[in-house]
Write a protein that binds this DNA or RNA. Structure first.
Lengths: 344, 344
DNA sequence: TTGAAAGCGGTACCAG
DNA sequence: CTGGTACCGCTTTCAA
């Protein structure tokens, strides 16, 4: 359609090379600048309608796709929000939160990217993220050190937000104190007259981030009372649960907080198979308020967890990016409330 | 420590600007080329030990982090493997698969990035991915059209791999035919003497990718026999299950394949509450072989699903990247086997 | 309205 | 052994 002057013969067979804006310009018979103006709808400059058409046609014909790296290199910044992808299998709560967040951020014209950071630890990981020059970094779970945060900010990240138990110097923090979960669970059991309370602690690695605070919270709730807390390590396997249930009478517990609903289900089944009556002999409470708890018999009491909405976090990010000088925000965002059903 | 000549006063207060290799070079008193050689351990060139020290020291002092975009712009390629992040909440099977895959790919020195593609459809999404110029793209679930694949390849992607029900022109395919799941489930129920077989189809949007083939597979297994298949739409809520169970006797079914173990648990509970005996009145089988199935009473029969190992997929990707000219590979990778327990 | 050209941060060739 | 320099693809003044 468009004549290309002075084109070597080698240009005819579909080259393996990626089309650039220069190719589009050549094909449309204009300069690269014009191509840029047209494709970005630059308002500061007016391009004639025929030219626009030619450029668009040429771009489509070549299948031109702009090169994000080149663009952001030139611009000096990107709109990429980076978060490390979770290394431990993650429940529906968190999945949904991430999804909401991605949605909200794309509404604000950010690109969300999860970076697979496996085997890199602490500041190593922070450096790997910094190489991508994201405009913001969201770190769930175990946070980077202040060093890591510094590296990120020095590399141009205008906001670093941690989602975890503790705040980090220089970073915004959405504090999710899982101790609260253990605390309300234990308090609930205590209020029900239970005094010998077990707390299940998963043996699976990676879960300490949650299990440790939940245990500590339970301990705190019972501190200074006449109740006794017993730590119960448990792997997420039937046999492990059966073994634990087999020595249940020697433990003499009248209640158990089972880390979450899945471990609760596992343990409850083993206890029932062992003839332990729930809640008469032993009260059971889980956490996370998963669907499955409602389907158990007796229905499982649980701790419902309220996470911040993705929209809220997205807005925090946007605010921080627009105003990088501001003081880091700290928000306590984890709501925990007992849902009393039949197992306690 | 190192004297910086001809530096304007404005350089002293910690600038908001990101340190570049030029800054490192200046501070170390060498050229940018030397900095590049040292930091990349370029073997083609030998740099004296004192110089290396100075460069490393300067880099550390400035907190220098290389700019990935600039690097890959110059190099003309990256080692980024891109996959769209899942838009529907995803089970433990898939999570674990992704994790394995990330691990295996990082062993091969690729960087895995999940791109949050929400609201972008089909070829729009493909264009967005192409802007990042990934060396490979892995697309689970609903595949891009041949158009999308073409865009990606033209933008320099040396491998496009789909993980889903069907192969796409030009892309490698790991074919995961979930029809097999429904097929073996239905065949199992039929072999157990059941002739009026229900198939649960989740009403949640996004699950059709899996539920449709599973249903079709069941239908196929029963085709030409004396068995009758009934489609049972069901939302993942207690009330919906209760409503379905309430009209169970009017349906006159003697067996049900419940899409997966979670829906099976939901339905089984509702049926039991309704007084339906399992498996005597109605046999139930789920799928995915989740832990929870083993904890139900009766123990839930299920279809165990065998996914490819992350390592295998990583190797496929690596092979394809090294040899982009090769014919696209097609592999049937979904293994399905009935685990017969007590509910059927 | 359009074009020429500088430059973002690195890398790698070629001189010295 | 080290420095100068061209260039990757794109945006954006500044001139014409």
């Amino acid at each position: 359609m468009v004549q290309i002057p002075n084109t070597p013969a080698s240009a005819l067979p579909a080259q393996r090379s990626v089309p650039t804006s220069a190719d589009v310009a050549r094909l449309a018979g204009v300069s690269r600048a014009t191509v840029s103006y047209v494709l970005n709808n630059t308002s500061a400059v007016r391009i004639s309608e025929p030219t626009r058409r030619r450029v668009h046609a040429a771009a489509k014909e070549l299948g031109y796709v702009p090169h994000a790296a080149a663009r952001s290199l030139r611009a000096g910044h990107s709109r990429m929000v980076l978060m490390p992808s979770p290394t431990i299998p993650v429940g529906p709560l968190y999945s949904q939160f991430i999804n909401e967040l991605q949605w909200a951020l794309s509404r604000l014209d950010y690109t969300v990217v999860q970076h697979g950071t496996l085997g890199l630890h602490g500041d190593e990981a922070a450096r790997a993220w910094a190489e991508l020059r994201p405009v913001a970094v969201l770190v769930p779970g175990s946070s980077p050190g202040p060093q890591g945060v510094a590296v990120l900010k020095r590399s141009g990240a205008r906001a670093v937000v941690t989602l975890g138990p503790e705040a980090v110097e220089g970073a915004h923090a959405l504090l999710m104190d899982h101790a609260t979960v253990g605390q309300v669970a234990a308090a609930h059991l205590y209020a029900g007259g239970r005094r010998r309370i077990g707390v299940v602690v998963p043996e699976e690695p990676g879960l300490e981030i949650y299990s440790r605070p939940r245990l500590d919270g339970a301990r705190r709730a019972l501190h200074g009372t006449d109740a006794v807390l017993t730590e119960l390590p448990l792997a997420h396997e039937e046999e492990a649960a059966a073994r634990l249930a087999a020595r249940w009478h020697t433990l003499g517990l009248d209640a158990v907080f089972a880390y979450n609903d899945e471990y609760a289900m596992l343990l409850m089944r083993a206890l029932q198979d062992e003839g332990v009556r729930i809640p008469e002999d032993t009260a059971v409470i889980g956490a996370d308020d998963l669907m499955l708890g409602r389907l158990l018999r007796p229905r499982l009491s649980t701790v419902h967890i309220e996470l911040p909405s993705g929209r809220e976090l997205a807005e925090l990010v946007d605010r921080a990016v627009r105003n990088p000088g501001a003081e880091p925000e700290r928000h306590e965002v984890l709501g925990a409330a007992v849902v009393h059903r039949d197992s306690s």
